[in-house]
Design a protein around this nucleic acid. Structure first.
Length: 564
RNA sequence: GUGCCCGUAGCUCAGCUGGAUAGAGUGACAGACUCCGACUCUGUAGGCCGUGCGUUCGAAUCGCAUCGGGCAUACCA
């Protein structure tokens, strides 16, 4: 993949500094060093130039010279020309470059050539990455935490794709273990209550109280009648679970698709039990020498790896724990399926599980660095100024579907990706429901609609977007135009940075900033009715911006409307 | 008790591997369309960057301590 405009610029500036330093050494003005480090940054304050290097300060100790002396020596050997207008020493020894815009204009040509692919890179070198997210319990509907995890995971997966990784989205279905027991007991009680009366059949204390359980039982009864009332308990439960679980999984799939999330793989926990992979992992644990038996249970000696407590692998009743199954699952991801990196998105309430999992992988000889866990702080829902509790058992939990009924998919996806995963988020439902400019997604979408509107209007005037080579780009010199161009040019780097940090929120913020700069440009610079050449140049800028904004919104799976 | 996350403008949050005078949005106040969509823009006010030490030429950023809020510490998942 080709080098971006910004990379070219930075490479050039680095070379200029390096050459100047070497010449200063040759001239006997500076001492020589092997570890020459050249940093470049964009100063916050514009009066300090477009790019700045602190290399003189970094070298001061090693060269045994004052930073300003070093900086002056280097600057005196820098050749002015090309995109460099001037170069000065400032402050404690900063070397500041003041540039003209000749380096920047070709970004529009790059956008023209790459189109929908502008922003993509080969940073990831096609490494196999998996993002596992949501993985909600199939015993009920999805809550607000799942909504956040869904928006985060899906956007992260797409972000990584743009950065050149080979990404698989996966949903882990916990269709085994204790909660399925509970699910079965709850269904059974509701089913029997239909035929034997509510007073005759007691509902388990720790059962799922939700109406969905009743509805499953009722629907099951309509199909099978009372044939299961006198059946063997195990058969009855199996039949109920098989029925209700499929319904729930199908519902999860539909709900997530409505949220614009499509998974590549739906992986069932039961597969790991049936294939013997769980049993295999338990054997491997035993061979590793990090296990022992106590009170009839098999324990993993987590304390060997610095943890405070050991963990149970197989319960006294002979059933493996969720922990054991989850280790088998991660072994399957990394070893069996060969992912280079496995990214899990977990709620903060699973925090304690991270070290345990990594240590378990180490014990089995699997590189724990192949697992990255993103701990997402829980969402607290606020309505009418009060915290709304989210609990499956109250039956009053706010579900993903409730949320999407109130607000738009665009708003929800955008809102959840406004903040970093580790921020404790308060989701103000009243605010999210409000479809106004309060919610930045409308601000961004409006910018896109405005660009399309300009393009359409000029098209009606018979003026269409021309090729970069036919445009006099030097006419674009207003500060708003230059700022906008710089923002466009920065997208590939923004995507790389965001991908490496696993932070799609950086891209969301980028879209807001881009929209802001466009609106500012719009108010300062007219496209229509100007000098013909200027109109052409600005129209090209608008079209370039439209492409970039559209790319960003596409990446986030948020609609980029032509009109609103 | 121990571990992790958070603490920056009234509110919601940015601040990249330490850099020069700490930034947005929102709210408040004052302005801008006979002109490409005012779902927009411009300006003003608002900060001991929780607190205290330390490292450094230089700290919101790194280290230690401390205070406040959240979460976790199951033979649940």
């Amino acid at each position: 993949m080709s080098v971006t405009i910004v990379e070219k610029l930075r490479d050039n500036l680095t070379k200029i500094l390096k050459d100047a330093y070497n010449e200063a050494v040759s001239a006997g003005e500076l001492n020589h060093t092997e570890n020459l480090v050249i940093n470049l940054e964009e100063p916050r304050e514009k009066s300090n130039g477009d790019y700045s290097s602190n290399m003189a300060m970094m070298l001061a100790k090693e060269l045994r010279n004052a930073p300003r002396n070093i900086a002056n020596a280097i600057v005196s050997h820098i050749k002015i020309g090309g995109f460099v207008d001037r170069c000065e020493v400032a402050g404690a020894g900063f070397i500041n470059f003041y540039l003209n815009n000749s380096w920047l204009y070709p970004v529009m040509e790059e956008i023209e050539l790459k189109g929908k692919d502008f922003g993509k890179s080969d940073l990831g070198k096609n490494q196999k990455y998996m993002v596992e997210f949501v993985s909600a319990n199939p015993t009920g509907p999805m809550h607000m935490g799942n909504a956040r995890g869904g928006a985060l995971g899906d956007c992260l997966a797409e972000l990584l794709k743009w950065a050149g990784y080979d990404v698989t989205r996966e949903f882990y279905i916990n269709d085994a273990g204790n909660q399925i027991e509970k699910f079965a007991n709850s269904l059974e009680a509701r089913y029997l209550q239909i035929y034997l009366g509510e007073d005759k059949v007691s509902f388990p204390e720790d059962g799922y109280q939700g109406d969905d359980i009743k509805e499953h039982a009722k629907a099951f009864a309509e199909i099978n009648g009372e044939s299961y009332v006198n059946a063997e308990e195990k058969d009855r439960k199996d039949a109920l679970v098989a029925y209700a679980l499929e319904k729930n999984v199908a519902a999860l799939k539909t709900d997530l698709e409505n949220y614009r999330i499509v998974y590549d793989v739906w992986f069932r926990e039961s597969v790991l039990h049936n294939s013997g992979e769980v049993a295999e992992v338990i054997e491997l644990f035993k061979k590793s020498g990090h296990t022992y038996e106590k009170d009839g249970a098999l324990w993993f000696k987590s304390t060997d790896f610095g943890e405070e407590k050991d963990n149970v692998l197989v319960r006294a009743n002979g059933i493996p724990t969720y922990f054991a199954a989850d280790v088998a699952y991660h072994r399957n991801k990394i070893e069996t399926r060969g992912f280079d990196k496995v990214i899990d998105i977990w709620g903060a309430d699973h925090y304690g599980h991270v070290a345990r999992m990594k240590n378990a992988l180490s014990a089995l000889g699997i590189n724990p660095d192949k697992l990255d866990v993103i701990i997402m702080q829980l969402v607290r829902l606020m309505q009418d100024g009060e915290i709304v509790r989210m609990s499956k058992r109250t039956g009053k939990a706010v579900t993903l579907n409730d949320l999407l009924e109130d607000t738009s998919i665009d708003a929800a996806r955008f809102f959840f990706n406004m903040r970093q995963a580790d921020s404790h988020m308060v989701f103000d439902l009243d605010l999210a429901v409000e479809q106004s400019s309060e919610n930045p997604v409308y601000y961004v979408q409006y910018a896109h609609a405005r660009m399309c509107s300009i393009l359409n209007l000029l098209k009606e005037d018979g003026i269409k977007v021309e090729n970069y080579s036919d445009i006099n780009v030097n006419l674009l010199s207003e500060p708003q135009e230059i700022e906008l161009l710089k923002k466009l040019a920065s997208l590939p780097e923004e995507i790389k940075t965001a991908a490496l940090a696993y932070e799609p929120s950086k891209i969301t913020r980028y879209s807001v900033e881009l929209a802001t700069m466009f609106h500012a440009f719009y108010n300062a610079c007219h496209v229509r009715g100007e000098d013909k050449e200027l109109t052409k140049a600005r129209l090209k800028l608008v079209d370039s911006t439209r492409i970039v904004l559209s790319n960003v919104l596409t990446m986030l799976s948020i609609d980029a409307p032509e009109r609103m």
